[in-house]
Design a protein around this nucleic acid. Structure first.
Lengths: 113, 113
DNA sequence: CAAAGATACCTTGACAGGCGAGGTATCTTG
DNA sequence: CAAGATACCTCGCCTGTCAAGGTATCTTTG
């Protein structure tokens, strides 16, 4: 969790969409996957996660359905829509752009003095 | 301004500090410099800028003083403090880390399926 | 010289996303 | 059976961004 909230802000949606690209999943698993991927360096807070699901579903980027688990706690599965896929690629492109811009602005450049 | 606010969020302070590294400056000029650097792709909104100045000053990262212009509108100059310098380098390091993390999480990786 | 535009500062209030804190229910393990 | 993991959820606060509005001075232009 060493990464501050404001730096990750705005990426939550894209991160979730990225995980749904290869197949349907449910909240708890997505969160686990993220922790694994970043070696515990970052975790979506549950409240953040579920807020994001609502937002993404309202936007038509994902849809959800209850799993038919015979055992264990019930799970709500999420699936990415074609629109969601498009959104993902658009958001990634935006990130690439933003990255360059931020990089430029954070530089400690001393040119001309 | 093609870059969305949420992606830049949290970088405002670092951007300002970066600009003050090479010398004192005032709000209007800093904003102009940012627009030039990004070829108009991004501009800090004034309200954001001045909020940030207050925040940075309260944190002891910068201090301000009124310029003694004999002509033109009055200018409030800002100067970075040693603590501010430290903060800048720390924030840059955080950005480097965050970047890697975000990159990892946004990947469209299909490994293992 | 008046109007328009640039320079330069500032505040208020709304909004959105993140998240701490709290809650529910089920299954597994010691 | 208690503890911990799995799995879901909501409420209300906090913080950073920014649209909209304001002030004052100087320069340019018709």
């Amino acid at each position: 969790m060493s990464i501050t909230a404001d730096l990750i802000r705005g990426h939550t949606d894209t991160i979730i969409l990225a995980h749904l690209l290869h197949g349907n999943s449910y909240g708890y698993q997505i969160n686990k996957a993220i922790q694994d991927k970043t070696a515990g360096q970052y975790e979506l807070k549950e409240a953040t996660l579920y807020t994001a699901f609502r937002r993404l579903e309202a936007a038509g980027y994902i849809y959800s359905y209850w799993g038919d688990e015979m055992t264990g706690a019930r799970r709500r599965y999420y699936s990415i829509t074609p629109t969601g896929r498009e959104a993902y690629f658009r958001m990634r492109a935006e990130w690439e752009e933003a990255k360059t811009t931020i990089e430029k602005l954070l530089e400690d450049n001393d040119h001309g003095r």
